[in-house]
Simulated assay, not measured.
Amino acid sequence: MNPTTTTMIMFSLATGTIITASSFHWFMAWIGLEMNTLAIIPIISKQHHPRATEAATKYFLTQATASALILFSSMINAWQSGMWDITQPTNQFSSILFTAALAMKLGLAPTHFWFPEVLQGTTTTTALILYTWQKLAPMTLIYLTTNNLSPSTLLLMGTLSTCIGGWGGINQTQTRKIMAYSSIAHFGWMAAVSTMLTNIMLLNLLIYTMMTTTLFTTLILTKSKTIQNMTTTWALSPTMTATTLLTLLSLGGLPPLSGFMPKWLILNELVNQDLTLTATIMAMSSLLSLFFYLRLTYTTTLTMAPNTTNTTYKWRFNLITSTLLTTMIPPTLLMLPITPVLMQ
């Protein structure tokens, strides 16, 4: 792709998210979402491959439907109240429509079917953008409208997303699909706590973004697209293999790693709100996610691919370095001790 074109597309992608995040008018928020969607379509389809074209088409149709629902719900609200302010209370019908639209944009269950298929048709770098940057605008709208959304709907979607995110990832062998179901499960946790404490939701989003960026940087550097590809990661860089082990365990939410912090705080808040059954279901479903994280861990770091004693490492051993990876590893692994500071 032409460098000028790439620059314009990436600038539009960033501008769309910033417009949505900084607007208090429904129409401007909708314009930002549309800019964001139209900018990511060429990035997804630039491979000139049928799978990429299919992924771009599915993404466009889903996001266009969600944006239309957002515009429709805001028009209903403006028709009845005469205001386009995002923070103003909305009626129940408009609130349910808006919640469903944001769930579709984020890929929450039961509107999650498009997400793994789109990610499987893209490159790993594009998948990283879809996992992280493309989630910021809908999460900002949830943050701004948390008092107007339906708590029972979000709790139901969050619980269902954590269950489906765990069940769906068990049968997958493609790393992008595994991470897609991981994303569905993580955003289920955020949706469940969004109507109670938004600061925990933002903390979860921050930690999830750092953990996903760390793991995807590793996948990009090692060109690992399947579980089978990850079995030879140790031959490229033993240090990166150890880092991958800890990152996967952090994504699974095991203490004393950073990924344990948001799940701990969310479960604590759910119990405080007398939602013990919901907290139990979500904690049990996280075990399903932990299973496929441990399977990735086992194949990546605890097994050794067939080799002879003369070919312990690849013939040309290249030193793999990444500024992004070295920047993201410490917060991905070591943020648990500063939990009280972050919650003040």
Results as ranks from 00 to 15, higher is better:
Ser289Pro: 05
Thr232Phe: 06
Thr244Met: 10
Tyr131Leu: 12
Asn318Leu: 11
Thr173Gly: 05
Leu155Tyr: 08
Pro256Gln: 02
Thr57Lys: 11
Ala242Asn: 15
Ala235Asp: 14
Thr99Leu: 06
Ile31Cys: 09
Thr90Glu: 14
Phe72Ala: 09
Phe317Val: 14
Thr140Gly: 09
Leu206Glu: 00
Phe216Glu: 00
His49Gln: 14
Pro331Thr: 00
Thr312Asn: 15
Ile86Phe: 01
Pro50Arg: 05
Leu251Arg: 07
Leu245Gly: 04
Leu254Glu: 04
Leu275Arg: 13
Ala191His: 11
Ser289Ile: 01
Lys225Thr: 14
Leu294Gly: 07
Met335Gly: 01
Ile178Met: 13
Gly252Ser: 06
Lys177Tyr: 06
Ala29Cys: 10
Ser161Asn: 00
Lys314Ala: 14
Leu257Arg: 02
Trp167His: 05
Gln134Ala: 06
Tyr143Arg: 12
Ile338Tyr: 09
Met230Ile: 11
Leu141Tyr: 08
Leu33Met: 11
Leu324Thr: 15
Thr278Asn: 12
Phe113Val: 11
Thr276His: 14
Thr90Arg: 12
Gln63His: 10
Met1Trp: 09
Gln172Asp: 03
Trp84Met: 05
Pro337Val: 01
Ser95Lys: 10
Leu61Arg: 01
Leu257Asn: 04
Tyr298Gln: 15
Leu248Ser: 05
Leu119Thr: 08
Leu108Asp: 03
Leu13Ile: 02
Leu144Asn: 12
Ile18Asn: 04
Thr198Asn: 08
Ile164Ala: 03
Gly253Met: 03
Thr140Gln: 12
Ala21Pro: 13
Thr175Leu: 11
Met83Trp: 15
Ser67Pro: 04
Met104Pro: 14
Ser152Arg: 15
Thr173Ser: 14
Thr308Asn: 12
Met201Glu: 08
